[in-house]
Structure formats: C-alpha cells, structure tokens
Simulated scan of single mutants.
Amino acid sequence: MTPAPVPEPVEGRTVAVRVPATSANLGPGFDTLGLALSVYDELEVTSLPEPGLEIEVSGQGAADVPRDASHLVVRAMAYAYEAFGRRMPGLRIVARNVIPHGRGMGSSGAAVVAGLLAAKGLLEGDVEMSSDDLLRLATELEGHPDNVAPALFGGLTIAWMSNDGPQHKKLLVHRGVSPLVFVPEFTMSTSLARSMQPLQVPREDAVFNVSRSALLIAALIQSPELLLAATEDKLHQDYRADAMPVTIGLVRDLRAHGYAAVVSGAGPSVLVLADGPGRRLEAAEIVARSDTPWDALMLAVDFKGGTVRDITEGST
C-alpha cells in the first residue's frame, strides 16, 4: 500500500507569538498549580521557501541560547510538525526574550509553548491543533504540565495527569491578588532542584499539603486574606533549601513579616502573593533593605495565555 504523501509546507507565512511567564507550585501545589504572569516572550516566525534556519535572539539569555535546530522553540516546532505528519519548512525566527532564564519563571515552558503556537499558526488551514493537542505536546516535551498549562491558557491553572493524558482547569484569580516576583542575579537548575526531592514523605506532611492546596484555591479566587496560611508547604521547599539558602532565607523573612512568599517554580526567584497593591509595595520596601540585590517585578496575573496571529504582509 502506497503511503499518503506528506503535504508541502505553506511558504511565506509569518506569525507573531506571545507567551507569558509562569510561576509553578505556589507553595503547596507541587507539580499541580501554576499562575500566568504579565512578563512575555515574543516571537516572529516566517516559513521560508528553502530549508534552513535563521535565528535572531535579543534580551534574556541572548548570549547563551543556540542558533540551530537545538533551540528549544525549533525543537518544539519540529515535534509538532512530526506529530501531525507534516514537513517543517525553512524558518526565520526573531525572538525577543523578556522572561528571565533559570530563575523559576517558566522560561523553558514558555519556549516550548511558543514553538507549538508558532507551528499551529504556520499550519493554520491545513492542520487544526486543539487546546488538548497543545497541552499534550507541551507536556510530552516539558515532562510535566504545571508550567505549560498556565503559559497556554493563562490565569490560575490546576493541571493533572489522567489515563487520557494531561488535563487542566483554568480559574480566574481574585482582583485583589497582587503578584510580586523577586528575581536574583544567580540561577538555579530545575533538574538539580528536583533531584533533592525525597521519593517518600511523611503521611502528615502529605495531608498538610493537601489541606493547604485546597485552601490556596479558595484564597486565590475568593479570599486573598487567607494567602499566608494557604501558601504553607512541607513537600518541596525545605528539601531544596541547601541548594538556594539565600532564596529560602528571603521566603522565611517575608513570611515572618506576614507576606505570602514562596519559591517561584524551582527557584531561585521568590513569588509574593500579596492581598493588595499596598501590601505588595511594603514587601518590596523590606526586600530593598536586604544585603542581596533582588530585581522586584510588580506584575499582574495574565488571563489570556499564549497567543498566535498571522501577520503575513497582505493578510487580513
């Protein structure tokens, strides 16, 4: 039986992609909860008539990211094209990176999502990628859905694995929640942070985190005054303390002052979920007096998630 021919790629199309930063875990919601934040990486991707890659990168990590097929955006695009039986065209990619790299703000998840959305945009009219398709492919590439779900869909997301693959539920965050991220100069390896997790934890610690995770959902969508209690954690942050003592020290200091501070993702950034803009400013003032320099990012919750649009000259 002769195999069906692989359709030729559409040439000359240009798409613009925008993907938010994310913060995963949020304290007790280890590998489950994620929040989209108003810091964005942006791409313009053009399909070319001839094979090859042209990659321009500016901003965060520009000196370090590869300019070949090992670039994470290109790898994600190739993965999507292969998954749908399409031949990837030559590409021109112009990337403007704003999300800090290696700081626990979902930069790798954003790159994966950006690549998948770029593929979705370039294949529009030939292949239709659903939200479920995008989450499945992103999770296969990233290994877990806690960062890619909010990057794709925005807001607060609960992500879990089922027999049918990764699933998510998006929730809208209470307007009183004011995120603040303290970004240090140093970085943290996600793989190193995850390697410090024990394979088993005490039953009482598991129960503790189940209760706090449930409370955190209520705090984020309805009762921000409960955020301090709701962000307590016994499953992952203390186990990683030796790898990032400065980060853990700041989390503990802010919590002692009554602020809902947690390690952002795998760290080393610190996320504060303040229950109002005034409280957020107070937290920033405390950190400004510390010996360690921290870049304070006053952010909003991104409710839209990743976007892609056709900007081909002459398109409507």
Rank of each mutant, 00 (worst) to 15 (best):
T292H: 13
M188V: 05
G12K: 02
L37G: 13
V10T: 14
A218C: 03
N147V: 09
D275E: 15
I55S: 11
F208E: 02
V57K: 02
E42K: 13
S195D: 12
V272K: 07
G305S: 09
T32F: 04
P20Y: 07
V6Y: 10
A193D: 07
E124P: 09
L235W: 04
G102D: 01
D126K: 03
G104T: 11
A138C: 06
T187G: 07
E204S: 06
I217W: 04
D146Q: 08
L116S: 03
A111E: 11
M244R: 05
L43V: 09
G155L: 08
D295I: 10
I217N: 00
L43S: 06
P166E: 06
P145N: 01
H257Q: 14
D41R: 15
P7Y: 03
S195F: 10
I311F: 11
P100L: 00
L33D: 08
T157Q: 12
R280A: 15
G165P: 10
H168E: 09
A284C: 06
E204R: 08
A149W: 04
T22V: 13
E313D: 03
R309A: 00
R255I: 05
A243H: 09
G314E: 02
G267W: 07
D302W: 00
K304H: 10
K120N: 04
A78C: 10
A149M: 00
